[in-house]
Design a protein around this nucleic acid. Structure first.
Lengths: 308, 308
DNA sequence: ACGACCTGTCCAACCTCTGTTCAAGGTCGC
DNA sequence: GCGACCTTGAACAGAGGTTGGACAGGTCGT
C-alpha cells in the first residue's frame, strides 16, 4: 500500500470535517484505524477518505452517527474486494463441475457444489469467483458455437434460481434504495441479479422487478419505495433505443442509470441517464461511489443522475 | 434481521407522523418493537417504516386505529406464529401477508411467511394452498385493474425465486423424465414451474429450460436426457400458432404435451400434441396417469402422446 | 343524552448523543 | 529552536431523546 499517507489535518481539509471530529469518531466508534508515525501522529490512507465520505453520506440521510459508523464498518468488510476469495483450487473444481453437469442437463452435482460453497464462503465471493466467471465462460463458448442454445437455457434457469435464492432478503437492509428492472423486451436477467447482489453487499436495498418491465411499472415502483435510483438493464443493443423517449421522460423525475451489454460501448447521453460499466460488480461499486459523491452537491433523494 | 437505522425523530419525519404518536401506538397497541441503543433510544429498522406506511393506508381506509394496528400486527407476526394451527386459518393469514407485503414492494414479511410455511408443511401443500391461490388472485386483481403492472412484476419475480428454490433438485429422483420449456416468445414461467414442482412430487425428474426456448433447443435437451415427454407452455393464445410447424415436427419424434392458458379452451389437435389442463396440479396428475397407462402397453421411451 | 372509551397531543423532569472546546504537553521539518 | 501541527483526556452544551401521566375532542353503546 504505497499510498501517500495523510496526517489528520490534511484529511480533515479534504473531507471538510474537523480533526477533532475525526478523532472523536475513532475514539467512540472505532471508525478509522490509522497507522501511527514514530512520534505517534495518525497517518491515514486513501481508503480512509472514502470511509469518511460514506459516513457523511449516511449522516445526510438522517442516520444517527453511531449507527452510520456501524454501517460503514459493515459495508467495508462486506465489499467484494475485501471478501476472502475462494481458493483457486476450489474455483477450478467448482467451474469444472458446473461445466460438466449443467451441460449434461444434470443439475444435481451443480446443486451440491453451490450448496457447499455457500456454506463455506461469503455469497459475494461465490458470485465473484464462481458464478460470474462461469457465466462469462458460458457466454464465450456459446458465441463460438461450443455450447448449444439448450445448454445455455438450462444453465441460465439453474443459475437464476440460485441467484434469486442468494438474493432473498436483499430489500431488507441498508440506507439506499434501488429499483432494478430489465428494459422492455429484455429477458436476460442474470447480469441484473448479479448487480443487485453486489449492490446489496454495498449497503443497498434492492427492489427487483425482473424481466421485460414496462417503464411505467418501473416508475410506479420507484415512487412506491422512494428509490434513490432506478437501474435499467439490457443485454441486446437496440433495446434501449425502442423506449428511449420513455426513459428520457423517466430521467426527468428520477435518477436513472442504464447498464448491461446493450449499452456498453456506445454513449448513453441520448438517454439522459448514467451509463454503468458492463461488469456487474464494477457497476455496483461505481453506482455506490457516485451516490456517495452526490451527497455533497445536492439532496439525497431523487436527484437526477447526470450522464457520465 | 434488518439493521436498526433510525431514531424516532427521523422515522417521524419520513412517515409524516409525530414522535408522540409513534410512541403512543407502541405503548397502546405494541405496534412496533424497536431495538434500543445502549442509552435507551429507540432504533427503528426499514421494516418499521413499511409497517407504519401500512398502518397509514389502513387508517386512510377509515379503519379504526386499534383494528388497523391489529391488522399490521398480524402481518408482521404471522411469520413467527409457530403454531401450525388449522390449515384454513394459516392459508388466510398467509394470503393476506403476501397480498399486503408484495403489493407494497416489501418482500420481507412474505419471505418470512414462506420460510415458516415451508418449514412446517410439504412444498406441494404450500404450492397448492398458498402460492397458486395467490397467483390466481393476483391475476384476477390484475385483470380488473386493481393491481398495477409494477406490483405484478415484483410479485412474479419474488415467487419465481421461491419456486426455483423449492424446485432445487427436481431433476434428481424418479423414473420418468420430462423436459419443460416455455414456447418461443413466451415469458410467463410461473405456471410451468408450478407444473414442474407437481410433477416432481409425482415421481418425475424435471429438466427445466425456462422462458422463450427455441424448439430446437428443447429437442436437443430432450435427446440429451432421453426424456419421456416434452412439455411446452404458453400463457398467451397465438404463441403456439407461430411455431406450430416446428411443434408438429417435434411431435413426430418425441412425446409432446402443451399447456398453459395459451391453449386452454381451444383444441390442439393441429399441434399433434396432447393438451394439458390449465391447472398445473391437475395437469401433472393427468400427464402422470397417462404415462402410467402408456408404460403398460408400449416401451417407456419416446412414445408419441396422442392428442387427447 | 349520557357516561365511557378512543386517540392525538402535550407536559415536565430527566437522560443520551454528539460536535466542539480546552489544557498541557509532544512531534515534525526547516 | 521555532512555529505549526498533533497528542491525550476531560468536559461541556444543545438538540433531541426518555418516561409517565394528563387532557380535550370525537365516537360509541345504551
Amino acid at each position: 500500500m504505497p499510498d501517500p499517507l495523510l496526517r489528520i489535518g490534511e484529511l480533515a481539509r479534504r473531507t471538510d470535517l474537523s480533526p477533532d471530529l475525526i478523532r472523536a469518531w475513532e475514539r467512540r466508534y472505532d471508525l478509522l484505524r490509522p497507522t501511527r508515525s514514530d512520534g505517534g501522529f495518525r497517518l491515514y490512507s486513501a481508503d480512509d477518505i472514502s470511509r469518511l465520505r460514506l459516513m457523511q453520506r449516511y449522516l445526510a440521510l438522517g442516520i444517527p452517527t453511531a449507527q452510520a459508523a456501524g454501517l460503514v464498518h459493515r459495508v467495508q468488510t462486506a465489499a467484494f474486494d475485501a471478501n476472502p476469495g475462494v481458493p483457486p483450487g476450489d474455483i477450478r473444481t467448482a467451474l469444472r463441475v458446473l461445466r460438466e453437469s449443467l451441460e449434461n442437463f444434470d443439475d444435481a452435482p451443480a446443486d451440491r457444489t453451490l450448496e457447499r460453497l455457500l456454506g463455506v464462503f461469503a455469497p459475494g465471493a461465490v458470485l465473484r469467483d464462481i458464478i460470474l466467471p462461469y457465466l462469462r465462460e458460458l457466454g464465450e463458448r456459446w458465441e463460438c458455437g461450443e455450447a448449444t442454445i439448450a445448454q445455455e437455457h438450462f444453465a441460465s434457469s439453474f443459475l437464476e434460481g440460485w441467484m434469486l435464492t442468494m438474493a432473498r432478503g436483499w430489500s431488507r437492509s441498508g440506507p439506499y434504495r434501488a429499483v432494478l428492472a430489465c428494459a422492455p423486451g429484455e429477458r436476460h436477467v442474470l447480469g441484473l441479479i448479479a448487480f443487485g447482489l453486489a449492490l446489496r453487499d454495498l449497503g443497498w436495498r434492492v427492489t427487483y422487478l425482473g424481466a421485460d418491465a414496462p417503464v411505467r411499472a418501473v416508475e410506479y415502483a420507484a415512487d412506491a419505495v422512494t428509490a434513490h435510483v432506478v437501474v435499467l438493464s439490457a443485454a441486446l443493443p437496440g433495446t434501449f433505443a425502442a423506449v428511449s423517449d420513455e426513459i428520457r421522460a423517466l430521467a426527468r423525475t428520477h435518477a436513472v442509470a442504464v447498464g448491461g451489454p446493450g449499452v456498453a460501448g456506445n454513449r448513453s447521453d441520448w438517454l439522459a441517464s448514467r451509463t454503468l460499466p458492463a461488469d456487474p460488480l464494477v457497476a455496483a461499486h461505481a453506482l455506490t461511489a457516485h451516490e456517495h459523491t452526490m451527497s455533497q452537491s445536492s439532496g439525497p433523494q431523487r436527484s437526477p443522475v447526470p450522464a457520465s
